[in-house]
Design a protein around this nucleic acid. Structure first.
Lengths: 224, 224
DNA sequence: CGAGAGACTATTGTATACAAATCGGGTTGG
DNA sequence: CCAACCCGATTTGTATACAATAGTCTCTCG
């Protein structure tokens, strides 16, 4: 993270995820370089990475813009994620080791701690959730699968609305993770695959419900 | 393709696919720049792109090497491709239009022409095959899915051994494509998904058989 | 004889200058 | 009034110089 291009990547990415750079905004290399305090060279690298993440779109004439995520795009991303992560779960179950299982269970305990409080710690929840899924992906042992999933996790819109998840939804995540751990303990690939698929798709509908309920008001707040 | 970075990308990629740069070879930016007749700047961009294609691997200290593809890697890639392309086929079937169907059928006619000759035209087969799958992917209408599949098609080892496919295998590809077109004509997503999945997995085993049969001799020929 | 420190070399990272392409606006001719 | 065109302003692409970092070899000391 000490390299200028990494800092530029993190900075620009954060500006997009937070809505500071709204969807459709043009991303001039010079302007970004100034905002990030580096030269254009690392900014260009960062933009290319963000482009493969599909957070940035380029026109046919090489101008960069913040990608906008329609409802369909989000549904699409969840659909893909459900397929790929359930595949990862199956592979992980088949390759499960005691150490990997410990790591997976530990991250779910951390998740439980984050949500069992008067005011749920959403950041803590997100971090534990990330670690849980990362542990599974590592255990799946496919560089290629990891590379593909890398561009699907941490979607901007989802990230922005995670704070609106109900307490019930958070607890459901925890119990589904527990069930996954049970499937892993038994090395049952088909079971793990099925749970993961429904886990992701349920998360999608939780997101969709929250988004519908809040609607454009939320978008307006996020943009300010 | 007139940009120096595109030329560098194409040149380096081709050197890797042809085996001119063998697996494990270090990719120094300076050396590549000289071989491609451009400066390091576009070479760096090309290397980053090849890295996301997983054709190039970087160490923790930022040195680039030609990735080597073990049998497991290839199996992995086919497994992923089968999942994603069958998903594309389902979506394409659900969104099929007369125009898209025409395009798909036309590319399969081109494929038939290429293989119905005394000496099959493998380059023509590959091109028609590419167009056939591209037409389906376009019809599926998911930018994200297209982006993910982009890194999975045209795998180096597969490309190198396509010339060893039997005439029978080529004809089977053609008839499976015909069956896909039938599923598309009926807009039967489940059928299209199933055919595509078996189509890809059959292609994998055709590759695996050819590779096993030819073995190291083929690798040696490709390296010269 | 092996391990570690140091200097030297090779390689990558960043900044900057300049070249090439693109965009926007205003003008002109139909 | 609209379209096409041209030119200045802006933006991106490439080359190059220099800085920083990693790798390698040798020399010395235990």
């Amino acid at each position: 993270m000490s390299r200028a291009s990494d800092r530029a990547y993190a900075a620009i990415r954060s500006m997009i995820l937070s809505g500071e750079l709204p969807a459709g905004a043009q991303l001039g290399e010079e302007a970004l370089a100034e905002r990030c305090g580096v030269s254009r060279t690392p900014v260009r690298e960062a933009l290319r990475r963000l482009e493969t993440d599909l957070l940035v779109l380029r026109t046919d004439t090489q101008r960069s813009f913040v990608a906008d995520w329609s409802i369909d795009d989000v549904a699409d991303a969840f659909d893909l994620r459900a397929r790929l992560e359930s595949m990862a779960a199956r592979r992980a179950a088949e390759r499960m080791t005691p150490e990997a299982l410990d790591r997976i269970r530990a991250s779910n305990r951390a998740l439980e701690v984050a949500i069992r409080r008067p005011q749920p710690d959403i950041e803590g929840f997100l971090e534990a959730n990330r670690e849980f899924h990362a542990a599974i992906l590592d255990t799946a042992g496919s560089r290629r699968l990891a590379a593909l999933l890398g561009t699907l996790i941490e979607q901007p819109v989802v990230w922005r609305t995670a704070h609106h998840y109900s307490r019930e939804a958070l607890h459901r995540s925890h119990s589904e993770h527990e069930e996954l751990a049970a499937a892993f303990a038994r090395r049952d690939g088909a079971w793990a695959e099925a749970i993961m698929s429904s886990h992701i798709l349920r998360a999608y509908h939780a997101y969709a419900d929250a988004h519908r309920g809040i609607g454009l008001v939320d978008e307006a707040k996020a943009a300010e």
